[in-house]
Design a binder for these strands. Structure first.
Lengths: 348, 348
DNA sequence: CAGTAATTCCAAATCGTTTTGGATAGTTTT
DNA sequence: AAAACTATCCAAAACGATTTGGAATTACTG
């Protein structure tokens, strides 16, 4: 069924070698034979077998991405934007992206072994770094090219190429913004502690409080899934225990959206009775009600740059920068407002 | 660096054949030698070369998905949910998903040729069927397994396996819902005409109007991108030309969210001054302000079933059903309400 | 004890390319 | 006319697995 070099060889009378070299444009094949061969190939609809090429050339022009088992927010905007950036840049450089889904934590490393050890991909992209991340340990040991969206936790070495937002500074900005509005009781909804960036966000929170002269109340902090549902439940629980909280910081926008729903369900007007802010600036943040105050993170661009970095590594080049911390920008929208019974000074 | 069968053979003194058969669990290798070989393989961290396996076995256990050049809404919820469903089901059945991004319409078919003709994948998944879709024509000609999210336009043959929502009925439900609320001037925002489902949604609109005894006004219908921005601009333009419209149907939720913003920007209260409804029931629809009345479509589930269908086809099985039209359900939320100056009858 | 049947192993072919290291014939240089 | 190039072509060896079709040895049958 499928046309192979051998078929073209048989039809034209030339050897497989010559066919291959003609198609590849080598100069050691006569211009006329080359034209003839090209025409026959065209005629037959020849399409080189990519798998055979991969085997022979020992490169795949493919990047791997495995979806972690517990990435419940995979279909959320953060992952989608990242993937869009990755696949855009990959296409630009003639790479494909191989995606594999882990069904359980245990299965995850097996997939990395299959893709990397099995030579299915030339490089890997990881997202959502974890504490003592076994995936990173494995890739390090294999000396296989990889890049990571997000550095390691502060107390671990980040000895790998990554791009990460300066979320510590980002959360500080949020705390400053809220305390400027008069909030003194600010809750924090974090993802599970095993996620590497959790610690940075907690640090930023503590630093922000200190800068504002506010005490750190451990019970104002809770952990939950990075999803709308996670934010919803965390908020219910937090407001149940501490009804006097006037502001909530969620570690990502998805949770913030859930938090807004939970607050609204309690009859609170978000932006007036309670301020809720997020992190990421996903597209939905601008269109939520009320529009979400948040920290902007260029996720699509991160995907692109990460991919460009990875492809450099694969090519054996030294990327200009291999550890990038991106500045964060505060985006003030209407989900944050003056604290309810705040009056001392203020001009609006 | 990498361990091959040959290395294990050399080390153990057995032949490559025996190593291979031992690892594959054939019965013609002695239990003890097998155990020994397994141990050595384990010791060396042997990982079979997947590319070599693919070449020899002539199957890849990989499904292909190419992101169309103009899929501006790829990072929107519809695509992400679909992809999540696809990769979940694929993982279940030990398949990977190969994603390639088309940078232009012209490039698109080339990618299909490279993946399909180049034997990189065992089957393809298409989304967003177009009129006279060249991708479908190509795959048909190749007799390569593929499935499609969305059937062909009504006047074209849908002679391929697909899953599609009954969007004609869905839009009828929306029109009925709006006319029940007293709306008599209902605008419609459609995607570009080359998208196959556009026609179904237009038909549903016309049928709905007829059933409600309302006239069809062609100028109430406009076309735009399936994105928030598309819905935004279409709404601006529609309300500029026809300020007396009291309801708007957007062909998907993303456009509906944009439409709400545009209406709100004109000072209209959505759900009171104007009703806006969408289609898809993406997660954000529930969390928008006001929450969006829409038609529910089980996108994640569609991805899963589509993938299961495709894998059946690859295995040469006859799938139970290969052309599935899903029922649509109306989800009433608060973005739709009574028409402004409606009074005749009504008990609320 | 010859003949048959299991058991255990392996050489070689194959999948479809790319690349190496010539071979051959024609052309130019001395 | 021999020597040295050039221009074209190709056989064979990879890449790393799987599978076919025995071979060699041992065990069992009648």
């Amino acid at each position: 069924m499928q046309v192979r070099l051998k078929d073209i060889a048989k039809l034209t009378g030339y050897s497989i070698t010559t066919i291959s070299r003609a198609l590849a444009g080598y100069s050691d094949v006569n211009a006329q034979t080359r034209a003839y061969i090209l025409e026959v190939a065209q005629q037959l609809g020849y399409q080189p077998n990519g798998v055979a090429q991969q085997l022979r050339r020992q490169i795949t022009n493919t990047l791997g991405l495995v979806i972690p088992a517990n990435a419940h927010d995979f279909s959320g905007d953060f992952f989608s934007q990242l993937l869009r950036g990755i696949s855009a840049e990959a296409a630009e450089q003639h790479f494909d992206v191989l995606i594999s889904s882990a069904r359980s934590e245990e299965e995850e490393l097996g997939i990395y072994r299959r893709l990397v050890g099995g030579h299915r991909v030339d490089g890997m992209i990881l997202a959502r770094t974890r504490r003592r991340d076994p995936r990173i340990a494995y890739l390090h040991a294999q000396k296989h090219p990889f890049v990571v969206a997000g550095r390691a936790a502060p107390d671990e070495p980040s000895d790998f190429p990554y791009i990460d937002a300066d979320s510590q500074a980002g959360i500080r900005l949020l705390v400053a913004h809220l305390s400027d509005l008069g909030h003194r009781h600010i809750g924090l909804i974090l993802p599970p502690p095993e996620i590497a960036f959790t610690e940075y966000r907690l640090l930023g929170y503590q630093e922000g409080l200190r800068a504002a002269g506010l005490p750190f109340q451990p019970s104002y902090v809770t952990h939950s899934d990075l999803t709308r549902g996670g934010g919803f439940h965390a908020t219910q629980q937090l407001l149940e225990a501490h009804p006097h909280l006037t502001a909530l910081i969620a570690a990502n926008d998805l949770m913030a959206l859930g938090a807004m729903s939970a607050a609204q369900e309690r009859g609170l007007r978000v932006g007036r009775d309670i301020s809720i802010v997020g992190f990421d600036d996903i597209p939905a943040a601008e269109y939520s009600y009320p529009p979400l105050t948040t920290i902007h993170q260029p996720t699509y661009e991160t995907g692109r740059r990460l991919t460009a970095m990875l492809i450099s590594l694969i090519r054996g080049e030294q990327p200009a920068q291999s550890q990038i911390i991106l500045e964060c920008a505060l985006i003030v929208r209407r989900s944050s407002g003056r604290a309810p019974n705040y009056s001392e000074g203020g001009d609006a």
